[in-house]
């Protein structure tokens, strides 16, 4: 799907639209359904996602290629990646809380939630599986972050509208949210073929 022969811009588009992390690749869904009932929450979460994804991409890439591979410890990658992400998130939370209070107010509480967000971990793994170099990995991570943002904010907007619609009791809340997601997913499938991807 994505490989080093693609330039960073194409990788970004692929990660953001054609292989949208939420609607096509099914990653990061827990937070997607849990937070999207309000646009405000979604914006906060998206910022956190973009921020953490880029940092996590860089750090995990470096650790994998400069530590695990040379030392023949590839089998430790699962443990290493998740511990790296958890640690990174901790450090970031403390740092932002202390030095960037307004930013913390906007997205700080979502940071711990991101540790278990499959999307971030998945990006780290996919970068390895697709054998991307550092620049392409960053493009990939950034694309995933923006794709997440796009999907969740659109979804939240639609869900807020839905709250005033007459929906049968059995379908209220999550069931109808899933139907909504399926329609969005259908729409995003239409991106296939964009730029020849």
């Amino acid at each position: 799907m994505i490989d080093n022969t693609m330039n960073p811009f194409l990788i970004f588009i692929s990660a953001c639209l054609i292989n949208n992390i939420l609607l096509i690749k099914f990653l990061g869904l827990c937070s997607f359904f849990g937070l999207s009932s309000s646009i405000k929450n979604s914006v906060g979460m998206s910022l956190a996602v973009i921020f953490v994804t880029i940092m996590a991409t860089v750090v995990s890439w470096i650790i994998f290629h400069l530590v695990l591979v040379p030392l023949n410890l590839v089998f430790l990658r699962t443990a290493t990646f998740i511990l790296t992400i958890a640690t990174l998130v901790q450090i970031e939370e403390m740092f932002i809380k202390k030095y960037l209070p307004p930013l913390y107010k906007a997205m700080g509480i979502y940071l711990p939630l991101i540790t278990t967000n499959c999307a971030i971990l998945a990006v780290a793994f996919l970068n390895i599986d697709y054998n991307l170099n550092l620049l392409n990995s960053i493009a990939h991570g950034f694309g995933v972050g923006v794709g997440y943002t796009l999907a969740i904010i659109l979804f939240a907007g639609l869900r807020e509208r839905l709250m005033t619609a007459p929906i049968p009791k059995a379908l209220q809340g999550y069931p109808v949210a899933f139907f909504l997601a399926s329609l969005m997913s259908l729409a995003f499938l239409g991106f296939k073929g964009l730029f020849g991807l």
Binding site: L23, K169, F179, A181, S182
Partner: peptide, 20 residues
Amino acid sequence: IMILPPGGFITIGVLMGILT
């Protein structure tokens, strides 16, 4: 469509609806 992404969402939505 059932084995494509939208199908997954629909199936779960339906099952949840039934359970609710």
